[in-house]
Design a protein around this nucleic acid. Sequence first.
DNA 1: CTAGGGTTAG
Length: 860
Amino acid sequence: MELAFPPFPSLLPKSHHLQPQPPSRSRPGRLQEPVMALAQAPPPWLALSLDEARSVHVPHHARPVQETRARPHASAARREPRFVSETKLITFHSSAGRLGAARKVFDGMGHRDLLAWSAMIGAYATRGIFDEVLALAVSMIREGVLPDRFLITRILQACAYAEDQRLGSVLHSMAIRRGFMGRVKDVPVGNSVLVMYVKCGELGRARAVFDKMRRRDLGTWNSMIFGCCRSCEWDEARRLLDDMRREGTEPGVVTWNTLISSYARSGDLDVAVDLLGQMEECGVEPDVVTWTSLVSGFVHSDRGDEALQWFIRMRVAGVEPNGMTIACAISACASLKLLRQGSELHCHAIKIGAVNNVLSGNSLVDMYAKCGEIVAAYRIFNEIPDKDIFSWNSMIAGYAQAGYCGKAYEFFCKMESYGIQRNVITWNTMISGYIRNGDDERAFELFQTMESYGMKKDTASWNILIAGSVHNGYFDRALRIFRQMQSVLIKPDYITILSIIPAFANLVAAWKVREIHACIFHHNLEMDGKIANALINAYSKSGDLAGACAVFDRHSSRNTISWNCIIVAHLLHGSPTKVVDYFFKMKQQGVLPDHATLTAVIKAYGMEGMVSEGREVFLNMDKDYNVTPDLDHYAAMVDLLGRSGRLQEAYALIDEMPLTPNLTLWESLLTSARMHGNVRLALLAATEMSMIEPNDPIIQVVVSNLQDLAGKSFDVPKVTVHGKERMFGGVESCSTEIRNMVYLFSTGDKVASEDVAAELKLMMVQTGLSMLSAGNGALEVEEEKEEVAGLHCEKLAIIAGISNSPPFRSIRIIKTARMCNHCHTFAKLVSEKYGRQILIKDPKYLHKFENGNCSCEDYW
DNA sequence: CTAGGGTTAG
């Protein structure tokens, strides 16, 4: 046999291979001894190559052996190659990237001393394979070999990474017993113990170690500050910042970055920005990490526009972004759906060579997908060399969002054969994709089967079903899922609550709003602005204005949205005076009104008949609040003018406005024309509506009825009228809750018993309302005449409510079509004679009947 | 030997 060992072709510089081997060094006889016959035994020129390889990174603790005794050892190796060279070989293989080979040598060793363990553990540690480090450390200690001060820090690093506090504390006490702690030169050991406790979340123990350290370096302070930030001990972190300066250690970039990134990630962006200023004042230049922390903080807080501003500020400061920065900025574009800026960043990523980087690649996939560029997303995805779970999940989400659930499912299925294990998010993404595309069946099927694939459902899986059901209008299904979730002991979280609240925002769910409100406290969930606002909405829409006010009064950080919620609530409940009050209070507290606020205020002035005040707001909104009037404002103005009978003015406003009128706008005009009996204008408005929505049968009927009323002399385009059966899509119905049961009533339902008929007769007598008179003689065109269809459903519901629910309880009815005049009068009279509050919600208004009056002031 | 920035679902 010429050559006992393969010449390790790629491991050494070429010159070594080409160098003729000195005959004296090849001693095949010795090399073929059993121990050395291990496939990976050292080649004869090893000693030489190791000397050469000193420039290669070698773990620190192994270095003294090489450096101090390289020469004598090298010669010893030739005489006694077994023992010494095995450890060296481990180091050699490892530094050349052959971890498996190193491990083989290590496993084959008979006796393993500290140096061998250090070499092996170091090899894994430098590659971040911490599980292996921990496993080896445990066996080492079991074999009775104790780590020295160098090795112990490496193992502690692994403990910190894996959050293995048990082994960590063992090493901590070992370090104390062996005298590695407390002396000046032991700062590194102390640091690594400190970091271990910090990463394990044991801030108290970390603090104890910190306090005992005699000497501290910058890293010590940084680690301790990091620990405090992690545990949200912000005051303590700031105190440490002061302390370190007092003790003569100036905070460095990392110190500042730790604080800035922690504040930014926790959403305290003002503080983060303030710290940036302090940092610059101290003469420390912000680096990529600083800027990236800010950009990512703003992205995280859903403030993408500001994130991009900070990105620009960074470029102005002359700091070059790296892959991470670009990834964050692209993610900002994704959430803002800024395709152009996103593509610009794409170019930038190419320029700095970060496109093939998984990180920026993934955010590009996400960005293109969110901007609807699914082909571009796939192109990027395809070119990411090491696709990870994020790449696949983003791609699946992209296809699902674009409506290609089949394609998404294809990727969902094939990813595992590409070596990427699906995680919960993959499953959740797929489920949410199906539910968002209306395929509830497949969504539920996946939801049910995921556990049999060994994937545990998490809160998000449940949240998706709840949010999807609410979004698709299946409120009771959402509630059922919510209950089921609790019965299998999955705790609802912030998102669960936020998703389910809208399901209760209707009149029949009044008690459920209180229940969910209590649920927040029961589960100790964060009650933030979003939840508070959702609650205000839900309380007000379920008819509980007092409940809405209570939430509003209690919640501290009110923004424009909060004020809008309470303002709209009062508008809905017919308290226009309060709307104006809140409007002034809001401005007084320095909260800027937005377009929604102004719409509500104009409507409120309209309800109060304060035409000139309303008009003033409308005319000056651009100047005063920097809000350009949109269609909603024009509709509110038409409403305001129409209520006071200024129909021509209302029409002129529509005629002269710079926007194209929409359905709501014409509907407002139609309503005012109807209320004031102006057939001509009503027909005009209805005709315009029919041209916008030519296929809406209800509009067709309205037009047809108005044409009849206006007489044949009036020249209008002839509109085909659909059959009346189709007009209501069956029968108009409404629901109400009586003694915790929800009942459904349909127009024309047979009056079931003699009792009810008698009750109705009695009510009629009591209220003095005749069955046939329609009240104020206004145009009745929006619903079928009662004589034809039978008794209207809300009358049935009112009768049932009055005779079956406890006295003084309010009667709450939700209906799908708008109220007719007769029912409206009936409800007013009943509310007075029977002393009951009656709430009836139709698609446009909430009518609150009390003491013979309605909150809509008979204009709806 | 120790310290800082990251992308996906609801």
